[in-house]
Amino acid sequence: MSSSLEKNMLILRSSDGEEFIVPEVVAVMSKAIKNMVEDECASNTIPVPNVDANILAMVIEFCKKHDESEAEAASDLKTFDSEFVNRGQEALYDLITAANFRDVKELLDALCQNVAEMIKGKSVHHIRIQFLGYQLFEILTSNFIWNIWCDRDFD
């Protein structure tokens, strides 16, 4: 890729209208955006639907870091990855959806690994609580309804 192309800047617009100016090399880490750029069907501004500004900022931060430190040690990148994905579960879910949608392979790998770490070594019960919000149903079904049911007189 020539240096003149590298200096190209793209504008990404998130779903809530915020715009981010990123270099093209960073933006094309997303396969979806790369396809759009290669097909030259994109003007300077690329809309990124389904991804809000917060998540898009995180994704861009990740891509920038990966682009900069491509030559650096892989271990450095790994620590950055593990810190990056170490967020709340809600943000993690949004990120993983965005990464899947935008097809950012490195981010997706790091996120999936993190989710796998969350599953590892846990019992089924814990996984259900953590991922499916199972606790609410279980507590209600096991104690609450059962008590009412048992206290009914069957006549």
């Binding site: 579960q89 790998d109 796998a116 599953i119 590892k120 996984i127 991922f131």
Partner: peptide, 26 residues
């Protein structure tokens, strides 16, 4: 009330590819 992770099938496949057999069984 709860945070749910409703992953799609291909995402689940990707996550499970990092798991060992024991965790996969779980």
């Amino acid at each position: 009330l709860v945070v749910r992770m409703d992953l799609t099938d291909d995402l689940l496949h990707m996550v499970f590819s990092f798991l060992k057999h024991i965790d996969l069984c779980m």
